[in-house]
Design a protein around this nucleic acid. Structure first.
Length: 212
DNA sequence: CGGATTTGACCCGCGC
DNA sequence: GCGCGGGTCAAATCCG
């Protein structure tokens, strides 16, 4: 759940719209997107909340079978997507719409904060009533993740949108959140070639960011 | 001209 | 079986 005046939030990936349907009890339609990477089956739904038109609900489904190369600008949105996952999970206790199993996740290519932010999308996000576990930074694949995982929603917000853009994440009760990552991938296990890397980059960089 | 979007048709599961 | 709601397909259209 993200407060935004624009429907499409950049999250570091490129999406192709493949459908749109009217939502019952809502004047706003729901849009369906697929990841443009042909080998990737990740889908997302974007709809605007009916009772709060300023809120955009983005639902991710599946798991990116590739890493993304994000720019600092896009990293903000990647973090926003993560925050969205957290809010959604908190609102729908144990409802596994976002199936998060990353046992076979490919290793990270670059140990930089932007990629790390994207990696967070693959992190296991679940809910628990045990507030003592809230926001515990378990086994981060990179120490760069720790500051983000340790902070609460508001702090994440501040870190994500230092310029107070029009996009604001809904505050959620972070005391019921547990964020952890599973089977952290070694950052040093790099197998892909520069050529492949370029192809992936070409696949994933949103058009709006190509000439920027 | 090629890739992305639009949009009605189509499909499928579910409740009656 | 039928209607409904949600999700997807694909031909037409748009746009750089």
């Amino acid at each position: 759940m993200t407060k935004s005046d624009v429907d499409q939030l950049e999250d570091g990936y490129r999406w192709r719209k493949y459908g749109q349907k009217a939502v019952k009890n809502s004047p706003f339609p729901r849009s369906y997107y697929r990841c443009t990477n042909s080998k990737c089956t990740v889908k997302k739904r974007v709809e605007r909340s009916s009772d709060d038109p300023s809120v955009v609900i983005t639902t991710y489904e599946g798991q990116h079978c590739h890493h993304t190369v994000t720019f600092p600008r896009a990293a903000h949105h990647a973090a926003a997507a993560l925050a969205g996952h957290m809010a959604f999970s908190a609102a729908h206790h144990h409802h596994h719409l976002y199936s998060a199993t990353n046992d076979h996740l490919p290793p990270l290519q670059h140990p930089d904060p932007t990629t790390a932010a994207a990696q967070q999308q693959s992190a296991l996000i679940t809910t628990s009533g045990d507030s003592s576990l809230a926001c515990r930074p378990a086994m981060s694949p990179s120490s760069l993740l720790r500051p983000l995982l340790q902070c609460n929603q508001q702090e994440l917000l501040a870190a994500t949108y230092p310029l107070s853009s029009a996009v604001m994440t809904m505050p959620v009760d972070s005391s019921s959140l547990v964020v952890s990552t599973q089977s952290p991938s070694p950052l040093t296990a790099v197998t892909s070639s520069p050529a492949v890397d370029k192809g992936l980059l070409d696949d994933m960089v949103p058009p709006a960011m190509r000439h920027g």
